[in-house]
Design a protein around this nucleic acid. Structure first.
Length: 921
DNA sequence: CCCGTCATCATGGCT
DNA sequence: TGATGACGGG
């Protein structure tokens, strides 16, 4: 960090072109060789530069409107990232600013990486000069490291993750003499997080909130927590935003430096900003106002404090906010609008539950008067059917800015959105698997397909099924690399070495591996540290030299202290990867796992190796630790062709040719808890989530609902999601079969099978929204209002929300479904046709696998779950054997991995199947 | 300190 | 149902 040339002086580029001389030719000398090169890419005055070619008029406007506040409402698949990156390229190549004068913030590291990469493609290495492109938090750290002392910290403060925070809070709660069962540390950590999301410090939280925890001692506890962080020279994630906000408010000179520095501000995913982020942006974006407009001052202050029970702080100071502070204004009539460009989509705001305020984007024009609002509605991703379905669904929300996506490439051949019904989640998984295989047979790549679920527990049935049929899949967003125990332990060792004062890390590993240091000893170290006002590591060293301890712990402690002293002495002389290895070896940590008999020990050792390997990219141990604190994700291996399984939340921003959306049932989607806690706005957020799901698909979209789902171990009958009823008939095709229905491909299980008398969806249950047209789907009569046999009799019962459809509450199908309910519950496979026998066969094999499936955990590889052989026994087959498979016919074995065979089928192509499914020919 | 037993509690998961 | 965490006996 220290060597970073962008890090030191603030005003090193003050000669840079100003935005008010925007159209002036680039300075002779050019900002740098790199930027100059970027400029050289610019063409003559009349021809648009290359990078503008291929933009549609709206996109181009969004790129070229560089001055003043701009809100780009970018619908799904409208080229949002392209606009952002091109805009940066445009600013650079027009010489409007140096790379270091652009502040570009994203939410996730992934988004930041992508933006950096794509800007790099446009402007070359100039992107390397963009030190202020990053996440809110990474930029926050950068700011805070520079001004740490203004927040009572040293610049080498550590960043605590959630785990550290919870442990710390637990200590505090216990120190207060409170019961940590009644007052769960986790809950309080969440409360603090919530307050920090709103920009509230201990003195600013609402009285009610303060009282709600720990017998009314919430505020004290919060304050104690902050004090403790300061003592530890540490901060949590929220502080990475809050401290800079405080600093900006209290040190106008500092803020003014950044005002002068940042000529352009760009914000990605603006709809996801929380109040703290909003304040942070406002502070940076809002230039001092002319003293001549006192009224707008007041208004502005009000807005500044919005969200705000933090009036106390505001009123306790002479000036309500730095935005109003009469700073020198470069001697010119400075506009008070900065060149801020926020890009977002109110319809994709799905993070309200963690503090995002959709309101920020809805109020943009009020916050930034005179803002240009540009709508990107031309969608390059999805078919007209998908867009039509999504548009109709999202139109049920109120309080939108309003956008309608359209495509100018409608194709009559495009498939409609498919809605399928299944009996239960197993059948759903089976049928989705069938459909995937059908697509695969049609030469669709698994990489182009994704299953997007509402809740992660839904993943299980798909994983189970895909393992059974040997279908490759990967789970995105599973347990994260840096959150694993072994990684966190190793990191704790490193942290103590790099920063001896890191008590939380020290505590984590004093007794790892076990060396007989129990609670009592640790408490003693704690007390000594407190008494002497030194870090625990130091206290431990002192204690080991004293007679305070019994011989055993004393010796152990002495060794620990000596170890750390030795490692710390190596810090500057030994390459950090080597040192890391030494630490893990000498501490006995690797041995601990080597001696561990449990099944996951080898994997953990593997992870540790991976950890060391990943350190190589970083200059120093310290740089690496910082990276990990901020970037908790690790890359996934993309090489394998596999279906992606992930939650709807983690799918935002992605796209797939073919998308499966299972679990569209009331209670699951929309999720009951979202409804309970969020009421109407909760429902609207769920609907936006549905919208996000639909708009991930480029071409093929399959929605599923089941009539029975096991929730917390209990089978519950469910009713179709109201969202299904909010889809427009014109774009939807209902697949009555329940099994796979993929044009042209026979469903091996027989499409009609599902409908054979087992259609009793919610029949026995009152649907609070009135009956759904899907209620009777799957019944023998196939009664679906949207399929030509309109239920005229029910036409009068339009629903308030999804009222575009008649319901089928009184249909024969519904009645029959009701009748069949009991029978259906018994799950009578025997009624199935010949094809179903095959499935029974599967079932038998399934149970056969039950025993062998114990090592199922073994499929976790670097955060990626991969369908993998689960049996230890080698297959009875050998490569080259000719075999027969019920479904795929004859083929030759091309590879064997345990009992998983890769077979080149004569007709069906290459498949991976388990050996139980084939017979030798 | 280790390990078995019991109770609890189940969205989303970024930084 | 099943995973996780706290507790108490060995």
């Amino acid at each position: 960090m220290a060597g970073d040339p962008h890090d030191m002086p603030f005003f090193d580029e003050d000669d840079a072109p100003r935005f008010d001389s925007a159209r002036a030719p680039a300075p002779q000398s050019g900002p740098s060789g790199i930027a100059a090169r970027a400029m050289a890419a610019r063409q003559g005055h009349n021809n648009p530069p290359d990078y503008l070619k291929g933009l549609n008029p709206e996109q181009r406007q969004a790129v070229e409107t560089t001055e003043g506040p701009v809100l780009v409402l970018a619908g799904a698949g409208t080229g949002k990232t392209r606009v952002l990156t091109t805009r940066i390229a445009h600013i650079l190549s027009q010489g409007l600013a140096f790379p270091s004068q652009i502040l570009a913030v994203t939410f996730t590291n992934k988004a930041a990486r992508e933006m950096k990469q794509r800007v790099g493609i446009l402007v070359g290495e100039a992107v390397e000069g963009m030190p202020w492109l990053g996440t809110f938090h990474s930029i926050g750290v950068k700011l805070l490291r520079r001004h740490a002392e203004l927040a009572g910290l040293r610049s080498d403060f550590t960043i605590l993750d959630t785990d550290d925070v919870i442990r710390l809070i637990k200590q505090l709660i216990q120190a207060e003499g409170l019961d940590d069962k009644r007052w769960a540390p986790r809950t309080f950590a969440q409360m603090i997080d919530g307050w920090k999301n709103k920009g509230l410090g201990p003195d600013e939280i609402p009285e009610g909130d303060a009282r709600a925890f720990a017998n009314g001692r919430g505020r004290e506890l919060y304050r104690a927590y902050q004090d403790r962080l300061t003592t530890l020279n540490a901060c949590d994630f929220g502080d990475l935003l809050l401290h800079p906000i405080r600093i900006f408010r209290q040190h106008h000179d500092v803020l003014a430096e950044y005002h002068r520095k940042f000529k352009y501000i760009l914000v990605d995913e603006y709809q996801d900003t929380n109040t703290a982020q909003y304040m942070w942006l406002r502070l940076l974006a809002q230039r001092p106002k002319q003293p001549s407009s006192p009224r707008s001052r007041g208004e502005d202050a009000g807005r500044q404090m919005r969200g705000g029970a933090n009036v106390s702080e505001a009123s306790s100071r002479p000036s309500p906010g730095p935005a109003d502070h009469p700073l020198p204004v470069n001697g010119e009539r400075e506009r008070n609008l900065v060149n801020i460009c926020c890009v977002g989509d109110d319809d994709q705001s799905i993070y309200g539950w963690r503090g995002a305020e959709v309101d920020n984007i809805l109020r943009f024009e009020k916050d930034f008067p005179g803002a240009t609002v540009i709508r990107l509605e031309r969608n390059y991703r999805s078919t007209a059917h998908i867009l039509g379905a999504a548009a109709h669904l999202i139109a049920h929300n109120e309080g939108r800015l309003g956008k309608t996506l359209f495509t100018d490439r409608p194709d009559p051949e495009d498939p409609k959105v498919n809605v399928h019904a299944a009996w239960d989640s197993d059948e759903e998984a089976r049928a989705v698997g069938e459909t995937i295989e059908a697509y695969q047979r049609d030469r669709h790549k698994l990489n182009d397909m994704a299953i997007l679920v509402r809740a992660s527990f839904q993943m299980r049935s798909f994983e189970d099924r895909f393992i059974e049929i040997g279908l490759n899949y990967r789970v995105i967003g599973g347990p994260r690399f840096y959150e694993r125990q072994e990684i966190r332990d190793a990191m704790a060792f490193f942290r103590v070495v790099a920063q001896g004062a890191d008590d939380l890390a020290f505590e984590r590993i004093v007794n790892v591996p076990k060396r007989g240091l129990g609670d009592a000893t640790i408490r003693q170290i704690h007390d000594t540290a407190r008494a002497l006002r030194v870090p625990m590591l130091e206290a431990a060293g002192k204690l080991a030299e004293s007679d305070e301890l019994k011989p055993k712990p004393r010796a152990a402690l002495r060794e620990v202290a000596a170890n750390f002293a030795r490692w710390q002495s190596l810090l500057d002389t030994t390459p950090h990867t080597e040192l890391a290895e030494t630490i893990l070896e000498e501490s006995g940590y690797t041995d601990m796992w080597k001696n561990d008999r449990s099944a996951d020990a080898p994997g953990r050792l593997e992870n540790l190796k991976e950890l060391i390997r990943s350190m190589e990219e970083y200059e120093s141990l310290r740089a690496f630790l910082e990276h990990v604190a901020l970037v908790m994700d690790a890359e996934q291996n993309e090489g394998l062709d596999a279906v992606s399984i992930m939650t709807l939340h983690s799918a935002k921003g992605l796209e797939f040719e073919t998308v499966f959306l299972p679990g569209w049932e009331e209670g699951l989607f929309p999720h009951q808890r979202a409804l309970d806690e969020g009421g109407r706005s909760g429902l609207e957020e769920e609907r936006r989530l549905a919208y996000v799901g639909l708009t991930r698909a480029k071409k093929n979209l399959h929605l599923w609902f089941v009539s029975n789902r096991r929730i917390h171990g209990l089978w519950q009958s469910t009713i179709p999601s109201r969202f299904l009823d909010e889809l427009p008939e014109a774009h939807v095709e209902v697949q009555e079969g329940g099994g796979s229905n993929y044009g042209g491909y026979g469903n091996p299980y027989g499409g009609g099978a599902f409908a054979s008398g087992r259609g009793g969806f919610s029949a026995g249950r009152q649907n609070p929204y009135g009956a759904s047209r899907f209620d009777s789907l799957g019944s023998p009569s196939g009664g679906f209002a949207g399929r030509g046999d309109q239920k005229g009799g029910a036409a009068g019962q339009e629903r308030g929300q999804g009222g575009a459809f008649s319901n089928s509450y009184a249909t024969p199908g519904w009645a029959r479904a009701q009748q069949n309910r009991t029978e259906a519950t018994s799950r009578n496979w025997g009624t199935r046709s010949g094809h179903q026998v095959e499935r029974i066969g599967y079932g038998e094999v399934d149970s056969g696998y039950g025993a062998g499936r114990t090592s199922v955990k073994g499929r976790t590889i670097e955060g990626e779950l991969v369908a993998k052989s689960v049996a230890d026994q080698p297959s009875a087959f050998k490569v080259g054997d000719r075999v027969f498979h019920q479904k795929f016919g004859n083929g030759n074995i091309s590879a064997i991995d345990g009992n998983k065979l890769t077979i080149d089928f004569d007709r069906a192509g290459q498949k991976k199947v388990l050996d139980g499914f084939v017979t030798a020919v």
